[in-house]
Design a protein around this nucleic acid. Structure first.
Lengths: 329, 329
DNA sequence: TATCCGAATTGGATCGTTCAAGACGGCGAG
DNA sequence: CTCGCCGTCTTGAACGATCCAATTCGGATA
């Protein structure tokens, strides 16, 4: 049974002191070239790996980032989070950090989980997905000076903390212009109840694009909770009351419902969704696509900027979505 | 600025030694009731939390479990993994473990990642999803006595290591019987190429259920790689050559393709998929549903059994799937 | 040759916890 | 009465890394 390889083993093997090995790892520039080479050779010859627990004890840093994994709601939009998480894991990995998962059923429990994770694991940072007006979680973290980034803007105070987001308004505006270019004039929008930052943003893109083209959007929008059934119901309602020729939705779930409602219309009513989920790809739904991998990468960038004490990095990143064209529009 | 609360702080506060506090945490039965109470009061009064890094240094255990998060392939079956991961996080949490994510592009890199994770973070265990014949990853882990569980049977040696799986054959058999009960006799199966354990298992369920009902399955099956387009192609092929009245598929992706191929058939050809993904729910596809939350929970059970030295727990768990009935069958 | 300087290296202390061994008082057996 | 044992609690050392202060060393300068 091979003995455990520690920094002392490496030091003996390379005939230097422990501290020199440590310097090779953490401050290579202060070690003479020749010595450094000898140490590095010993490291790879022995297959040495620095013990994170010991390092953490001294430095207080765990190189661990926490991310929440949510229960799959209707399971359609859940995939957005999953793709984001995957990107996060990959990028964090490359930056020398690992992603730790946690769950929580409500905000209060989530804050308790933060406390626990920070206390026992000394997590370096948190990544939050989706924040709301006056979010208690961000307030708690900010209070304690815990580094964190959100994927999603803090709608009530844009400078409150670092964030990465995708410009939803630009996405719906582009989708609207695409429909206008195709000759549509009666373009409806189905979104979420007023007051959700994300939903309001997406509706604004549609609204402003129509106004810019000289089209009056009055009466052409509906609001509801997310869900396939709701999308179908409201689309039927719109078709009966407003005779739109195209329907733009705030999510693929709603759009999927819309698709069912417009079945058989002639000429076919166009439908565009939001999020470019696998479901959209599967059924051929045109949808606004978020650059999730890029968003995750920028989150890691922001975090490492804060963690490594580089205060000159920007703290807000707004990414542009694209339109995934398929056959529903 | 409040001083950091360590085991020594608690000890002072409760007027006992460090070791006694440690005993209250790790071996309460050897501490006198009255003393224990005093220590527990001190712990909650101070909000003490054991530092995991220090504990790990002494015990060599990190209370961390690694799980792989995959790139969303066609994104449909990806959601299966996501639901599993969520269940894993919840159950592991309850058992006092945390889930650490990792990614890898191929088996060789994955093994290198194991080495790294074990060396630097001293992970307690791994959860692998999906294994193949002669999987190099399980061999590597077994070689080094690293505790691990797979979600998916090791098809070449059922006793090789602990696993949890869902009885795919039972699922397809139940689906087949459902179709037989509805009066179908020409029930086709679209699956994956011979040699994949999971695929062969699912086909066997269909095959045996037909034979048991006295129906000859000859000519009624097709094999291909997974994917919507392939499902559509093979279904058209089947419709032209064998005139089936129902098509059972090894995945929802294939079934989705089948749905597109049968559009317009009269009477409608029935279709059943496998995995009960959100897409299936969205389009109303009847599908075989795996109990993923339960599977994740049993994985954690098996791991904690091994980690806590309880060698009497069973090492193999086979769960039964159910049929999610919708309007395609 | 002696002195000094700074770069390179060394040894000791430290982080917070658990392990190993020992101290102490009380109790029953010889 | 003494011994040993048991239950309970305490003390010192160790895990493997980094930080800090002290020391060595080679070379340049006086």
């Amino acid at each position: 049974m091979p003995e455990k390889v520690t920094i002392a083993t490496v030091a003996r093997h390379a005939r230097v002191s422990r501290q020199t090995v440590s310097n090779v790892l953490n401050a290579p520039h202060i070690v003479r070239q020749e010595t450094r080479q000898r140490v590095e050779d010993a490291i790879s010859a022995l297959g040495y790996r620095a013990n994170q627990a010991a390092r953490q004890m001294r430095t207080g840093r765990s190189r661990l980032i926490a991310a929440r994994i949510e229960p799959t709601r209707d399971g359609i939009n859940g995939s957005v989070l999953d793709r984001f998480l995957h990107g996060l894991t990959e990028t964090a990995d490359a930056a020398g950090y690992r992603v730790l998962l946690y769950t929580a059923t409500d905000d209060e429990r989530e804050v308790a989980t933060y406390d626990d994770l920070l206390g026992t694991y000394e997590l370096d940072a948190f990544v939050l997905v989706g924040t709301k007006y006056g979010d208690p979680r961000t307030a708690w973290l900010a209070d304690r000076d815990v580094p964190f980034v959100t994927f999603g803007r803090p709608w009530d105070a844009l400078d409150a903390h670092p964030w990465v987001d995708v410009d939803g308004a630009a996405g719906t505006a582009a989708a609207t212009r695409h429909l206008l270019d195709a000759g549509h004039r009666r373009i409806a929008f189905i979104g979420w109840p007023l007051g959700s930052g994300v939903g309001d943003d997406r509706r604004a893109g549609w609204h402003d694009a129509l106004r810019a083209a000289g089209v009056d959007p009055t009466g052409l929008h509906r609001e509801t909770e997310d869900g396939i059934a709701e999308g179908e119901r409201l689309t039927r309602d719109l078709l009966a009351a407003e005779t739109p020729t195209a329907v733009l939705c705030a999510s693929d779930s709603l759009a999927l419902g819309a698709l069912q409602a417009i079945r058989g219309t002639d000429p076919p009513v166009s439908v565009i969704g939001f999020d470019d989920t696998p479901v959209a790809a599967a059924v051929g739904l045109t949808s606004v696509s978020q650059p999730l991998g890029e968003a995750a990468a920028r989150c890691v960038d922001l975090l490492t900027g804060v963690l490594d004490g580089n205060h000159e990095t920007p703290t807000h990143v707004l990414l542009q979505p694209s339109l995934a064209l398929r056959h529903t529009a």
